[in-house]
Computed example of a mutant assay.
Amino acid sequence: MTSNSSGTRAGTAREIQITFDCADPAALAAFWAEALGYKLQDPPGDFRTWDEALDAMGVPPERRNDASAVVDPAGDGPRLFFQRVPEPKQAKNRVHLDVRAAPGLTGDARMAALEAEAERLVSHGAARLQRFEPAPPLGAGHIIMADPEGNEFCLD
């Protein structure tokens, strides 16, 4: 393989991490772990808990919710990283996640599956924003949601 100007080998995919700026990393990480079937990232090394690891690192209690991360338990999906920022969300997302809640389903069955997932996520702090009905041939139907801090995502 040849290298390109960035130093990566041509044809080699890079791992990605999706980063969320937020006010409460622990709470948002817990929401997205629930939404995606992810888990909180394990503490580093031989530490049994994050509190043990953060104690050893000298992180003061008031800084322990500065960041959090969730990972796919199977190791296939991207890591989601949540970092505390001082400013609130101010505009519509330019990039959003599509949560595939009804793969392979069409019509009424698809929309029923999306509605059930929307209801489940609302019970965990999400907000339902708008429903788009199926519009064949290209529009299968989807529901726009917002996570507990207002970041838009779609159930599709």
Score class of each variant (00 low, 15 high):
A113G: 11
A91T: 04
K39V: 14
T106Q: 12
N151M: 00
L138F: 12
R84S: 08
L54C: 04
M1F: 02
M1K: 02
W50L: 06
G125F: 05
G125I: 04
P61K: 14
I144R: 06
E133G: 05
A35T: 03
T49V: 11
F132N: 09
V122W: 05
S3T: 07
A126L: 05
E15F: 12
T2K: 06
R14K: 09
G77E: 01
R131F: 04
A126R: 08
D108W: 04
G139L: 10
G45P: 07
F31D: 02
A116S: 06
E34S: 06
G77Y: 03
V71D: 08
P73N: 13
L121Y: 03
L54Y: 15
A26C: 00
K89I: 10
P25E: 07
E52W: 10
E52K: 13
V71Y: 06
A53Y: 15
S123W: 01
C154T: 03
D55G: 05
E152Q: 11
N93F: 00
G104D: 02
E152N: 04
M111F: 08
R48F: 04
I144H: 03
L105N: 06
I16K: 05
G150H: 12
G37S: 07
G45Q: 08
F132K: 08
P44K: 11
E34A: 11
G75C: 02
G139K: 10
A135L: 11
R14Y: 05
P61I: 07
L97P: 00
L80S: 01
P61E: 15
L138D: 12
L36N: 07
E34W: 01
A35K: 03
A74C: 06
R120G: 06
M57L: 14
G58E: 08
Q130L: 12
G45F: 12
V95A: 09
R110W: 10
A23D: 10
D55W: 13
R120T: 06
C154A: 06
L129N: 12
A109C: 04
K89M: 12
R120V: 08
T12Y: 13
D76Q: 12
A35F: 03
L80K: 01
E117V: 02
Q17M: 14
R100D: 15
A135T: 09
A27W: 03
A10D: 01
E62S: 13
Q130M: 14
L40N: 07
F132W: 09
R48D: 15
F31V: 01
D72T: 05
R64T: 05
G150M: 06
D46R: 10
P103F: 02
T8A: 10
A101N: 04
V95F: 09
G125V: 01
I18K: 05
E52D: 15
F31L: 00
A56F: 10
G77T: 06
P78E: 13
Q41V: 09
L155I: 04
